[in-house]
Design a binder for these strands. Structure first.
Lengths: 340, 340
DNA sequence: TTGAAAGCGATACCAC
DNA sequence: GTGGTATCGCTTTCAA
């Protein structure tokens, strides 16, 4: 597949100059007369010259490409982040490899190995990566967006929301609307890091602080064996079938919230008054639902922007302003907490 | 940023052999004694050797990476295709650049230029690309998945569904359930190629064939200025407000269908009996809805598989079995056509 | 079985 | 202002 395209050498020949001069003109470096510039540029255009990045990368030890790792691009929240990050990186002159790890350590490992070999300049990890993988990335800069915990690498930045505070605020919102027995429902979290989601901490401290029941039976956590929508519905059904009751639900994710809302509706519960529900991520799911679901806006644009800026700073070898950047979140109330 | 990592030369030094031998061992080519193999492999491992793909690519004129272009990864249907294609390519040893063109010709052009420069081995275009862009890709093999029309390139394959037949089958399904006045609603199609969607043709011929009304007022087509969900709802509202009536809706996309269903529900219409609705793509939207929306399963797995296989064949320089591969579709009936 | 050396395409240093 | 040339890391003949 010897796809021999026109090289800098060909242009040098045609223009009757040296490759050094052609390189200078093409990169607008060094010095050359207007005449040679015009000549070289014209010939380059005529010949449809396209720089060979493999050669350039080899020489400059920089490929101008980065890897974006995420457990699941089909997840609405992650895909939005990926999209925005990719756009910003592109604007900065970087091409992105986008990689679906499926939360699988082995796959991740293979990816990282390949990407390091392909000489990416840095990594953007979205939504969590297992601890082993990035260690392979040697000295490459890494930015984590929406991942709990740091990995102790050298050139690393963490960008995310304050999850305990988010759990607190979600719970507080329900209390403000009169809820007294509040359930916590989560589904996928354990897939990526194991253990309880960080929001649970805020949920508990809020309840404790306000002297409300913090019943273990109301903490519903399911594995991600099926769409979180379905799983969430089953968790709610099981809980109610077991005779427990609640008047508020903190759902860690809009898909989860939608599953909860659907399950409650199916039982004839008046969602928004008898039981209030708040989701998380402000995704399409919360808006598609009837009643519309209250949620937490996490400002994906800001998460992506901060993350990419931090990575670019690291790539420039500059100082990173902070090792840990917290982006504020915002409660968005809709029908499922406001009622009607 | 002179990230000098261990090279084949370093290993040759340490092992007391030549770079040629190291290369042979590492690629399991040529011949060498077991002893040297073990030695080289051991040292490579110890030193954490990772091949420099930039160098390899330069030498071999193949980067083992391809570009996947799509107008919108946050679109459920496209993102599934992207995901599957990426996985298959990865399994075949290729890394994928994933690019969001946003249906914008200029962006696409910039992407393609960059990717050609980055020496991708081929292109997978999902969901349509503007005619200009791929011409830049010179001689590179191109596979189109779910894109109407071919682009007349040399090494090109088209994989998709039979859209007119799909429109026909959707319409036929509604007729079989007793619908006589059937509307056609579409939103985003014109964004990517302009003109009427291909399904409309099948819709019309089905109606004509069965001697049913083919009222221009029932063909609702909206631009993609806002979420198709909302847009679709407005189209339906406007149509009904204008005094037109229908008892069936062919919606070109599940998001569109969901918008239609919600709009009808809001007006107190009994969806599934008074008006039947069928969507397209078998995405999460059709399942999330109450009532569940009938739809068309397009077999994304098969689309991706056929596409990737065709590309791999082209990359191998082999003959492509066909220039135009049609993947069958399948009607999936749910509550919005079955009633109940 | 092993090695010396050419060369892929581009950059940059240092002469001229 | 311009050009010769070493160099990046790897593969691949061709000889030994």
């Amino acid at each position: 597949m010897a796809r021999r395209s026109v090289s800098i050498y060909d242009i040098a020949q045609l223009a009757g100059v040296s490759t050094a001069t052609v390189s200078n003109v093409l990169n607008n470096k060094g010095s050359f007369s207007d005449k040679t510039r015009d000549l070289v540029l014209r010939i380059a255009r005529e010949q449809g010259y396209v720089a060979n990045f493999a050669a350039k990368s080899l020489r400059e030890a920089s490929t101008k490409s980065v890897a974006i790792l995420t457990p699941d691009v089909s997840n609405d929240f992650f895909s939005t982040l990926v999209l925005k990050a990719e756009g910003l990186l592109r604007a900065a002159g970087y091409t992105s490899y986008i990689c679906n790890t499926a939360g699988d350590a082995e796959r991740e490992d293979a990816y990282v190995r390949d990407l390091v070999s392909k000489q990416v300049d840095g990594f953007v990890c979205i939504g969590g990566v297992t601890p082993e993988a990035p260690t392979l990335a040697a000295d490459l800069p890494v930015v984590h967006i929406d991942h709990r915990g740091s990995l102790g690498m050298r050139r690393e930045v963490w960008v995310g929301n304050d999850m305990p505070a988010m759990g607190y605020d979600m719970t507080r919102t329900l209390v403000a609307r009169g809820c007294a027995r509040i359930a916590l429902v989560s589904v996928s979290a354990s897939l990526y890091h194991g253990g309880e989601p960080d929001q649970a901490q805020g949920y508990r401290s809020c309840l404790r602080e306000l002297g409300l029941a913090c019943d273990p039976e109301l903490v519903l956590e399911g594995p991600h064996r099926q769409p979180s929508l379905v799983e969430a519905g089953e968790l709610v059904d099981a809980c109610l079938d077991a005779g427990h009751t609640f008047d508020g639900v903190v759902a860690l994710g809009d898909r989860v919230a939608l599953g909860v809302v659907n399950a409650l509706k199916a039982r004839g519960v008046d969602v928004g008054s008898a039981v209030r529900v708040i989701g998380m991520d402000d995704s399409i799911y919360s808006r598609v639902s009837t009643p519309a679901i209250s949620t937490v806006r996490r400002h994906t644009g800001e998460l992506a922007r901060q993350g990419v800026e931090a990575l670019l700073a690291l790539l420039d070898g500059g100082q990173t302003p902070s090792q840990r950047i917290v982006v504020p979140h915002e409660i968005v109330e809709r029908a499922t907490t406001l009622g009607e």
